[in-house]
Design a protein around this nucleic acid. Sequence first.
DNA 1: TTGAAAGCGGTACCAT
DNA 2: ATGGTACCGCTTTCAA
Lengths: 329, 329
Amino acid sequence: MGVTIKDIAKAADVSYSTVSKALRDSPLVKEPTKQKIIEIAHQLGYQPNVAARSLVSKKSHTIGVVWPTIERVTHSALVTGLNKRLEELSYTTLISINEMECAINTFNRYQVDAIVAFDEKNSREPANSTVPIVTYGIAHKDAPFPTVDVNRKQAIRTAVEHLINIGHQSISYIGDMVQEDHLQEEKVEGFRQAITEAELGLSSTSIMEVTDLESYDGYEAMKKLLKEPDHPTAIISGSHDLSKGILRAIHENGLSIPDDISIISYDNIPATETFEVPLSTVGVPLDIITEKLSEVLIALINEEEVNHSIYLKPELNITQSCATLNGGK
Amino acid sequence: MGVTIKDIAKAADVSYSTVSKALRDSPLVKEPTKQKIIEIAHQLGYQPNVAARSLVSKKSHTIGVVWPTIERVTHSALVTGLNKRLEELSYTTLISINEMECAINTFNRYQVDAIVAFDEKNSREPANSTVPIVTYGIAHKDAPFPTVDVNRKQAIRTAVEHLINIGHQSISYIGDMVQEDHLQEEKVEGFRQAITEAELGLSSTSIMEVTDLESYDGYEAMKKLLKEPDHPTAIISGSHDLSKGILRAIHENGLSIPDDISIISYDNIPATETFEVPLSTVGVPLDIITEKLSEVLIALINEEEVNHSIYLKPELNITQSCATLNGGK
DNA sequence: TTGAAAGCGGTACCAT
DNA sequence: ATGGTACCGCTTTCAA
């Protein structure tokens, strides 16, 4: 069995309440005593028992992450980043890959201090949790919990506006989901708004449907697009993975980026450098998302008020994948 | 705060120790009483406090999964499967994406009953855990813990033998890691053994190095291979991701599978159907791995003896990606 | 069959 | 500055 504070107390020849104080760095313990106790605790390989601690303090200093779709890698970089940030704030992260409701039950039993949910499915149930929950990227509107998310509509609008600015008149968006998906609809809506509001009008635009957001879906959509007699001069892709497939289709058709086609990809994943052509992207940088998420979490734990919906502002990151056409500035 | 057994006791007008027994389905409580208590507990939405329970019972009915490399998707399907299996056994799964040592410390504090480690890095430290640990796919030999793993050497041997059987005389293996990686070396070793032992000898063989196991690395290696005047008639790929890139390089060269080149991919991922050509694979089916892992976990928890190293037998799954050549059977 | 009570490993308050 | 002790919610004897 593990070492307890009583063992340490015996070894240090003090009472165990003093040990408790010393280990919590209380000012009520004289410095030399504290040092001695900490030293002994370390020697004995003491690990505080979370069960005992959270039983009395009602706090576990643990954040639960609900992430039922680990097989879709969209969020893995985000989870990694969040974990790191929370560690800095001396919180422990626990991940559950169960469905929202089941995961929340588990976390409630574990007395986590707060929960982040990355559920991509449409679990609309306002599962009853005894601890605060914040959601990210939930695939439907009107989430019953506070939400930190990317302003996807604005992201796509920004991308369209940039392309128009540099002279593009024929732009396609790839990423309209066949089945209902609020997150994707937001992006499509952004595309529609931007082209409607374009002052000079555009010569042609199109929106390509995909059945999923995998690389292959992007490949298919792009191939279809390239079968048409005139292909657009610029593509906006709805996701990192779609972009992979889009690039491949373009490549296979003997076209080159950006000479024949410009492309901007929606995403907030750092790893776009694995592409042959470093891609222009529009999205919120990862560390801004993790920073905001943890900020909200801590606020919720401290029972401070938080905005129900926080939409982060996407940033445009233009690389050589975009060409300026005649008439562009 | 949450509902406790005392609340239930009050509502049911019994002592709280009776409630405890009833909820644990003890035979020491009369059936009607038990039913009443369970009913009330349900009505009140009672969730047992894990902290309190595990504090006294020293058991948490929780398995910790150490998985520091979530961004490499290799194990995601496996983790999902394991989670499901453990749930059936009424264990809760908790995932930590911290480094082995840190994760183990966390889990020790949480009093998990056992730990599965999927560390792919070379953390050789025999981190001192108070609970049993079983490892899978650890990137070095002589793990200080019991291990369940795939017999990778045998997997590749099986693949080579099959290719020889169906008439191939010129075979390449793609997947020798530039930096040290025990798991990959095992496979290369399997390849070497198989070609050494081939009765009739082979006309030519080669082993291609890769810097990583990403799709792109496979692409590069295959391209290099295809620059040679004579390309092999069959390829064995060291991983699912490598295969992706290999397929692409073959495709780009205007070659077709299996007419020009046959291919077998090592892997134990179910999702090979996303490829244009359904790939022949050699590996251990996912559910066999999860079954074995959970079996070992439970055995370790019950303090039964387990073999230090358990190597699962890979299965060959041949599809249309392999062509029979003249002289093959 | 049920209830009372000890104690798991801590925290925090009160006394000393 | 330190020690004593009640108690967090639950399990598990032991008594009734």
